[in-house]
């Protein structure tokens, strides 16, 4: 194939990758898209992608058949990734250093493998891409363009997923706070209801206490109206009326004192 044609086919593959990626709603879906589409962009035995945003980390390991993702609260970098992080520039390792890869990513020595690595940093975010190529899976400088394109799309997608995750967490927190406030309101309402009941009880009891001397006053006033003489009123009714009025006053004072005491006790402020 002509070089132009190869480019065109690869761009088509990239556009397909891009479309699939934009529809992803989880890190697992992203891993799956990588497993399916990455091999049409460039050659590799395996690819490792690590993304970090603030305290959030996602690590993808993609082979020809498989793709795995770990989402963590702290970085779980491979030794060569730590080197990339400290040097902050593209690196390429020969056979010997490739031995630092986990056993699962080892390939036969006759492959004469090369490990390529890139660092893409952007504000609070950092994306590492590393790729293991060999004689049967050759990787050339020309392919770096697609690594960069892939990294850009992936970086914004992973940030979006982490932001959504954060949003869900915040929403959960808000729901929790709301539920707690509901509980507090319920408790306060029940306290107020109890206080109201108690105050109502006091007012009923008070009314009963006051009725007794008051009924006497009313009775005596009636007798006064029917009395035969002033002497009867002066000698028999008035002293009793006075006593009853005093009793009523005493009861009223007690009621006021009790109610005040209860109010303080109930903390109705």
């Amino acid at each position: 194939m002509e070089e132009n044609q190869i480019y065109r086919v690869t761009y088509e593959a990239f556009s397909k990758f891009s479309n699939s990626l934009s529809r992803c709603r989880s890190f697992e879906e992203v891993a799956n898209v990588l497993r399916v589409n990455l091999k049409f962009l460039f050659n590799y035995h395996c690819v490792r992608i690590s993304f970090q945003w603030e305290e959030h980390f996602a690590h993808f390991t993609i082979s020809m058949q498989d793709a795995q993702v770990e989402v963590l609260g702290e970085g779980n970098y491979m030794p060569h990734e730590k080197q990339l992080l400290s040097q902050k520039r593209p690196l390429c390792w020969n056979n010997q250093q490739v031995a630092m890869l986990p056993l699962a990513y080892q390939v036969p020595t006759e492959e004469q493998t090369e490990l390529w690595g890139w660092v893409f940093e952007n504000q609070e975010r950092c994306l590492l891409v590393s790729l293991l190529a060999g004689q049967s899976k050759p990787f050339t400088k020309r392919d770096v363009t697609f690594v960069r394109l892939m990294a850009e799309s992936l970086e914004s997608k992973l940030l979006e997923l982490f932001l959504f995750q954060e949003l869900d967490k915040r929403n959960e927190e808000i729901s929790y706070i709301n539920a707690q406030q509901q509980e507090v309101i319920k408790q306060r309402t029940s306290e107020i209801t109890k206080k109201n009941e108690r105050l109502l009880e006091i007012s009923i009891a008070s009314a009963h206490q006051m009725r007794e001397p008051l009924s006497r006053v009313l009775g005596l006033v009636q007798i006064m109206g029917q009395a035969q003489s002033m002497e009867t009123i002066q000698e028999q009714v008035l002293p009793r009326l006075s006593k009853s009025a005093t009793d009523l006053d005493t009861v009223l004072r007690e009621v006021i004192d009790n109610a005040t005491g209860e109010l303080i006790e109930l903390g109705a402020d």
Binding site: R216, G219, I223, Q226, S244
Partner: peptide, 14 residues
């Protein structure tokens, strides 16, 4: 005593 006085007065009045 006063209650009884009132009631008694009422009865005598009737």
């Amino acid at each position: 005593e006063i209650t009884n006085f009132i009631t008694e007065s009422f009865i005598r009045n009737i």
